[in-house]
């Protein structure tokens, strides 16, 4: 008697629970969850160079139902300003932060502080951080050493293996960034054997064109190598301004640089797959937000080498030219 009653009671209770859950789920399914917010903090957010990256990020945000906020930033935001911006974003409800860090040095405290409060994803360049066993943050970047090497290779392909007699000026960008250091490392180790001589290296972040001009006036280099997009644009602008015609090689993504290739100013350019970087960064954060146990992992993105000949190749077109309406 008792046995039977317990059996039926438990069974009905189970059914009742299922009924209540399904009803509430049915009611609640009408009310959509507020999507998680992911804030993107990049240098000079309105710059055209981010077009590809942001379109990837936006597509991923759409696919993964994430609210993407691109924080409006000016040029050369320093690390303290970035930290302040991030704090504001987190206070305003951002659960994920995509950060192009302003400096890779002594960022341990900042990174551990942020990754305690939100999911952090570094793009473009890694930074100093403590051991992160839990995988609360990760970096998505190109293989920067390879990018540097590729640039050196491109010079050798364009001008021959023996470069003795050639002089090189390097627009090396922010030397406090790991990515720049690694590109520099990859480039110099690969160019050394060619016999080319590095005349100058410029690490300025502002008025780069003027700095190049200054350096060129002191010691004129035959080849200009820019390790980042801004440097590459500046090198081209310098060339247009000065009327000189050095060879220009560099890393870049902006449509301006693409157009400089088209014009023949840039001999060859290394273009990382920034669309993929944008997409993956948002996707990785969304995945981590959904499942906090899975550690985040660093990822390396691919790059292409673009020159005037392959600029309009079917595959390159899609990556280089955004559709303009």
């Amino acid at each position: 008697m008792k046995n039977r009653n317990v059996f039926i009671l438990v069974f009905s209770l189970l059914l009742l629970i299922i009924f209540l859950t399904s009803t509430s789920a049915l009611v609640l399914s009408g009310v959509r969850d507020e999507p998680a917010q992911v804030s993107v903090i990049i240098d000079d957010s309105s710059q055209a160079r981010w077009a590809s990256f942001l379109s990837g990020a936006e597509q991923a945000a759409k696919d993964k139902s994430v609210k993407l906020k691109i924080v409006s930033t000016g040029k050369s935001v320093n690390i303290n300003q970035q930290q302040r911006l991030i704090s504001e974003e987190i206070n305003e409800g951002a659960e994920g932060i995509i950060l192009q860090i302003a400096s890779s040095r002594q960022t341990e405290n900042m990174i551990s502080d942020i990754s305690n409060r939100a999911v952090l994803l570094l793009i473009d360049s890694s930074a100093d951080m403590d051991v992160d066993v839990e995988g609360r943050s990760a970096t998505i970047e190109p293989n920067n050493i390879e990018v540097g090497r590729a640039l050196a290779n491109e010079i050798r392909i364009a001008l021959g293996n023996d470069l003795s007699g050639y002089t090189i000026g390097i627009v090396a960008g922010n030397k406090r960034l790991n990515s720049m250091m690694l590109r520099m490392e990859g480039f110099t180790e690969n160019i050394e054997s060619s016999g080319a001589k590095v005349l100058w290296t410029d690490n300025s972040l502002n008025s780069i064109v003027d700095n190049i001009e200054y350096r060129q006036n002191r010691a004129r280099a035959d080849i200009l190598v820019a390790l980042d997009n801004n440097g590459l644009e500046a090198a081209c602008e310098y060339v247009i301004k000065s009327g000189e015609s050095p060879y220009i090689f560099g890393e870049g993504t902006s449509i301006k640089n693409v157009s400089y290739i088209d014009d023949g100013l840039i001999t060859s350019m290394v273009v990382p797959n920034e669309y993929y970087m944008g997409y993956q960064s948002v996707a990785a954060i969304a995945k981590r937000l959904e499942n906090r146990i899975t550690p985040m992992e660093n990822e390396t993105i691919s790059y292409r080498v673009i020159n005037k000949e392959n600029l309009f190749d079917e595959n390159n077109q899609k990556i280089l030219f955004p559709v303009v309406e």
Binding site: S12, L15, L16, I18, F19, S22, T23, A25, L26, S29
Partner: peptide, 13 residues
């Protein structure tokens, strides 16, 4: 799916 679950459970009860 929720609807089916709901109907099934209420019918069973």
């Amino acid at each position: 799916r929720y609807f089916v679950l709901m109907v099934v459970s209420i019918t069973l009860i």
